[in-house]
Amino acid sequence: MRFEGIYTPVITPFREDFSIDFDAYMASIDYLIEAGVHGVVVGGTTGEYYVESHDERVRLLEIAVARCAGRVPVIFGTGSIDPNESIRLARAAAEYKADAILVATPPYSLPTEHEVAQHVLAVDRAANLPVMLYNYPARMGTVMGEACLDEVLASPNIRSIKESSGDINRLHLLMQKYPDLQTSCGMDDQALEFFAWGARSWVCAGSNFLAEEHIALYDACVVEGDFDKGRRIMGAMMPLMSVLEQGGKFIQSVKHGVTLAGRFAGVTRKPLLGLDEAEQQQLETVIRTLKASIAAIQKEGK
């Protein structure tokens, strides 16, 4: 499987009583497909998987596969603090016909690289599907380093890695030492650098509400090879990246962005709380300016 394009980690819309609004969830998937994203991720961090039950996570996968109906691939996140739960989720991915799975390090337990590798391979065996690794040390507490990668790449299913460390040296390492491992941008404010080094996919939460603008950066850099245009688009996106990556309220900001776009996003489940009025106004201003700037850049090229 080739991972190319914009992959959106879909939000989970929760009502005020914290139940899932499945109709709104399906509407989000429809929006993403119609907007032109290249794939969706179910059960990613942006989907708040860590506060969802096993049954909820599997139901979201089942709906997504049915809704996408082969139009775009569905990647299913198997992340859990409990490795046995990750294996159960991997089996569900195979049962409900996910196209690939996302495999992260179990958080909190701080496994060694060999232990991480053994976990990855166990989840891989449970699903026997293409695998996108997920390296996010800030959340997981440990890194999928070279020893881990060298071990897991013995499996032909390990196809890609979502690199979310924020360490540009990791990008250099992956692109130079592991050229056959498809590197996907997982740190939004480094998307331009990833594309410049040859990455061909971006897992980006902001595409939940700004799909066209994220696709515009991908098209400029990867499809057209126009990095001058890409720099201008990325420059217009940087204020949003600052809000998302450095603002401290990543998921809340994404959900408010979806609300501003006219779709139901709902609340976040605890412990997360929504944006205050000042934060909402800041995000609204950033989005309005971004959309106008990128529209002008796109118009110049026509």
Results as ranks from 00 to 15, higher is better:
100 A>Y: 04
249 K>I: 01
240 L>I: 00
32 L>H: 13
113 E>G: 11
188 D>M: 05
14 F>E: 04
254 V>S: 02
89 L>N: 02
19 S>N: 14
148 C>K: 03
94 A>W: 09
174 L>P: 01
68 C>A: 14
239 P>E: 00
56 E>H: 11
148 C>F: 06
293 S>K: 06
200 R>M: 11
68 C>W: 02
204 C>K: 02
130 P>H: 00
73 P>I: 00
71 R>H: 05
64 A>R: 08
143 V>C: 08
238 M>Y: 03
5 G>S: 12
7 Y>K: 11
194 F>Y: 11
96 Y>V: 09
240 L>P: 01
30 D>Q: 12
214 H>Y: 14
47 G>C: 12
92 A>V: 11
13 P>E: 04
172 H>F: 09
250 F>Y: 05
153 L>V: 12
142 T>H: 15
143 V>I: 12
93 A>K: 04
104 A>P: 03
107 P>A: 07
134 Y>A: 00
198 G>V: 08
14 F>L: 13
92 A>L: 12
211 A>M: 12
285 T>V: 09
53 S>K: 08
190 Q>H: 09
68 C>K: 08
211 A>K: 07
42 V>T: 13
194 F>W: 05
133 L>K: 05
88 R>T: 11
183 T>S: 06
54 H>P: 12
143 V>A: 10
246 Q>A: 13
264 F>M: 04
287 I>W: 01
282 Q>D: 10
49 Y>I: 10
106 P>K: 06
274 G>V: 10
121 L>Q: 09
90 A>V: 02
6 I>M: 08
198 G>S: 09
270 K>V: 15
7 Y>R: 11
66 A>K: 15
268 T>K: 04
171 L>K: 01
78 T>V: 00
128 N>Y: 07
254 V>T: 01
132 M>I: 15
252 Q>S: 13
78 T>Y: 00
205 A>G: 02
100 A>Q: 06
265 A>I: 00
246 Q>M: 13
108 Y>M: 14
242 S>T: 13
43 G>Q: 00
189 D>F: 07
288 R>Q: 14
281 Q>M: 14
137 P>C: 13
3 F>E: 07
190 Q>N: 09
215 I>H: 03
152 V>F: 11
290 L>Q: 01
263 R>I: 05
69 A>K: 06
146 E>Y: 06
148 C>E: 04
292 A>L: 08
221 C>Y: 05
191 A>F: 03
89 L>M: 08
203 V>A: 10
178 Y>E: 06
275 L>R: 07
89 L>F: 02
10 V>D: 11
261 A>I: 05
193 E>S: 11
49 Y>G: 05
126 A>H: 00
149 L>W: 03
162 K>S: 01
82 D>C: 02
117 A>L: 14
212 E>I: 12
31 Y>A: 13
174 L>Y: 04
244 L>I: 05
166 G>D: 08
56 E>Y: 11
181 L>A: 03
256 H>V: 09
195 F>G: 03
208 N>A: 09
83 P>M: 07
117 A>P: 13
287 I>S: 03
188 D>H: 04
63 I>Y: 15
272 L>F: 13
230 G>Y: 06
168 I>Q: 11
263 R>T: 06
93 A>I: 06
214 H>S: 14
287 I>L: 08
281 Q>S: 15
6 I>R: 03
120 V>E: 09
36 G>A: 13
31 Y>K: 14
208 N>Y: 04
87 I>T: 09
92 A>I: 10
220 A>E: 04
18 F>E: 15
220 A>D: 04
211 A>F: 06
186 G>S: 02
